[in-house]
């Protein structure tokens, strides 16, 4: 018997407000770090980082087991960034997690930096894989989940991918493999920002209906507002509840959280700018971005 998402949701208590506030604060800092890095290069994937900041905060500040001073600790949960160009957001999350020093963020994209523009495991502590060639992350995640389970590890694998990566056949090879091998220790997070390199996702290659696709591939599928921290945490709690019911937490259905996000989220100037994969931000605009981010956060935080 499998629990439907409705039944599970009813069985799990809503996340506590303090927990939500803590993750929102982490997301706020991650967004500031991303702006700091973006300003170094004068451009970049800032829009994606801002959009994904709540997802990254939920993962690093709430979900992952890790040791900041020992990024290779064997018992850690694995977070795999499949979208290498989101590295700017991931570095910000690693800084929030204490794995990368905040002061190092300003080296982003510079020669000899440990923080290259596209994420690479061989460069950065806490970076598990070299993403960038899209559609790889979930295949590696399947192998990691299999390998950890074989070695009786309780560690989980979380793979961050984008809706654009749903174009890649390898993503669906991996989706089938994860279901076939019943990888209950694997969770995928799909950032659905509806934007690809050449334009809006529905004009590049239509991926909808996304929920039905993942369900039909045998995954426990939830679709949430990826900029709603409470919804993200509830989705993770639902997965944890199902794993507890299953008893053997490393086997059972793999889980996916489909996260609808907004490019540039938290900075109205960028939220309303014409959507672009590689967003250009003028020199004088960085300070405006920071001010808007802070004003927005403080406005809702004090509410």
């Amino acid at each position: 018997m499998t629990l439907s998402s409705v039944e599970t949701a009813a069985a799990v208590a809503a996340p506590e407000p303090e927990r939500i506030d803590r993750i929102r604060a982490a997301a706020y800092r991650i967004r500031h770090y991303a702006l700091t890095m973006g300003e170094v290069q004068g451009q970049g994937y800032v829009g994606q980082a801002l959009g994904a900041a709540d997802m990254l905060a939920a993962v690093y500040a709430d979900q992952l087991s890790y040791r900041a001073d020992d990024p290779h600790w064997e018992g850690r949960d694995r977070f795999l960034l499949s979208t290498g160009h989101y590295a700017i957001g991931h570095y910000a999350a690693l800084a929030e997690a204490g794995i990368v020093p905040v002061a190092e963020l300003e080296t982003y994209g510079s020669d000899d930096s440990r923080l290259p523009m596209s994420g690479m495991s061989t460069y950065t502590p806490g970076m598990e894989i070299s993403g960038g060639s899209l559609g790889h992350g979930l295949t590696i995640a399947v192998g990691m989940a299999l390998g950890l389970r074989l070695q009786s590890s309780a560690s989980r694998v979380i793979n961050f991918l984008s809706d654009g990566e749903l174009d890649e056949g390898s993503t669906w090879e991996a989706a089938m493999g994860a279901h076939h091998h019943q990888l209950g220790n694997l969770t995928a997070m799909v950032d659905i920002n509806a934007l690809q390199a050449d334009g809006a996702t529905d004009t590049v290659l239509r991926t909808e209906p996304v929920t039905e696709k993942w369900e039909s591939f045998g995954w426990y599928t939830q679709r949430v507002d990826g900029n709603d921290v409470g919804a993200l945490l509830a989705a993770f709690d639902n997965i944890a509840a199902r794993r507890a019911v299953a008893g053997t937490s490393a086997s059972g259905q793999p889980s996916v959280i489909l996260c609808d996000t907004k490019v540039g989220r938290g900075v109205p100037l960028l939220e309303t700018r014409e959507k672009a994969h590689f967003m250009r931000i003028e020199e004088h605009e960085w300070q405006i971005c920071r001010e808007q981010l802070t004003a927005g956060y403080e406005g809702t935080a004090s509410a």
């Binding site: 990691m144 299999l146 950890l148 056949g169 390898s170 493999g177």
Partner: peptide, 28 residues
């Protein structure tokens, strides 16, 4: 049998997963 993994007719998954297994210390 417990150390053998059938990945299906999916070569990208085969080698991506082999990489993931090696990342956990196995020798695929």
């Amino acid at each position: 049998p417990e150390r053998f993994f059938q990945m299906g007719m999916a070569e990208q998954l085969l080698f991506g997963a082999a990489a993931g297994m090696a990342e956990t210390g196995l020798i695929p």
